[in-house]
């Protein structure tokens, strides 16, 4: 759906307050978010604008993080990229094809625990192989491999209610990986983890991302985490949710928090976030 008023309004907004240089190269436009807006019908009958004029392109194999205050629309934007919710304005394309629903290469790790309570850890992960054409034994075998990857092979036969929040989150990650998605959409995936596990999984995620060349869109509240992982950090501002600034993280990997450039970027993002 092309809404010319919306496009013109957003173009004007961009020229007034540029957030980042725009690319026109199709290679760098693997995911193209074009003037996306989202309004929800409020209970009072009025409507609230949750996203407005979101313009962003994400290159293939890029690792992009969204940071921003609670309620600024990160989850909503991720859901729209996932094809789980429709944009009310604008459009998103993946590899040139408009997103019309899930199943265009997007795998999702949800913010809330979205494991199926009636399936054990291994069966939850095996659920991710449902459409892979593998038979049941192969699905379970591969699910076990993924559980091992996230360090949960010992908990394979536990039901979600028998696992801690962090364990459930790791199973969710394994389940999303089962889909072998081109695009991994992760909504605060490490939020419920202790520091040590979090750092281990950050490394694991980087390893998977580098080895399997996935495009990752990652939501986090931790500037440190975003700086450790991302190629670019997109800072969102609330009411209505919009992109405030995009930061290039031009640091070589593996990164260290003690580098001066790391800290300089941290300060810069912190300042922008808190004003």
């Amino acid at each position: 759906m092309l809404d010319h008023d919306n496009l013109a309004r957003c173009a004007l907004r961009r020229s007034e307050a540029p957030v980042a240089k725009r690319t026109t190269s199709p290679f760098l436009q693997f995911i193209a978010i074009n003037s996306v807006g989202k309004t929800f019908a409020a209970r009072t009958g009025s409507s609230i604008s949750v996203l407005d004029c979101v313009d962003l392109t994400i290159a293939e194999n890029e690792f992009v993080s969204f940071v921003g205050r609670s309620g600024c629309g990160k989850t909503t934007l991720l859901n729209i990229i996932a094809g789980l919710e429709d944009a009310t304005q604008g459009q998103i394309t993946i590899a040139g094809r408009p997103v019309t629903g899930p199943g265009q290469g997007q795998g999702v790790v949800f913010q809330q625990h979205a494991l199926f309570p009636w399936l054990t850890a291994v069966d939850n992960v095996a659920f991710g192989f449902r459409k892979s054409g593998l038979n049941k034994t192969d699905r379970r075998q591969k699910a076990m491999d993924l559980l091992t990857l996230v360090g949960l092979e010992a908990a394979a036969s536990k039901y979600p209610r028998e696992m801690s929040g962090g364990m459930q989150q790791r199973v969710s990650i394994a389940r999303a990986l089962a889909l072998d998605p081109q695009i991994l959409l992760m909504d605060e995936p490490f939020g419920a983890l202790d520091e040590l596990t979090r750092i281990e999984l950050q490394h694991e995620l980087l390893r998977i991302w580098e080895a399997q060349r996935k495009t990752v869109v990652f939501v986090t509240h931790s500037i440190n985490e975003a700086l450790m992982l991302s190629d670019r950090i997109v800072l969102l501002a609330p009411n209505p949710g919009r992109i405030k600034r995009v930061f290039d993280v031009d640091l070589p990997r593996p990164r260290s928090r003690t580098e001066p450039r790391f800290n300089a970027l941290y300060e810069e993002i912190w300042d922008e976030l808190s004003t």
């Binding site: 789980l84 899930p102 795998g107 949800f110 459409k131």
Partner: peptide
């Protein structure tokens, strides 16, 4: 709804979504 969403990302819809997710839930 988050369970239904999760299942949709794995390509389930219609009758299969109902049988595999809605009914057990």
């Amino acid at each position: 709804p988050v369970l239904v969403r999760a299942a949709r990302t794995f390509g389930l819809h219609g009758g299969e979504l109902f049988r595999r997710v809605v009914l057990p839930a």
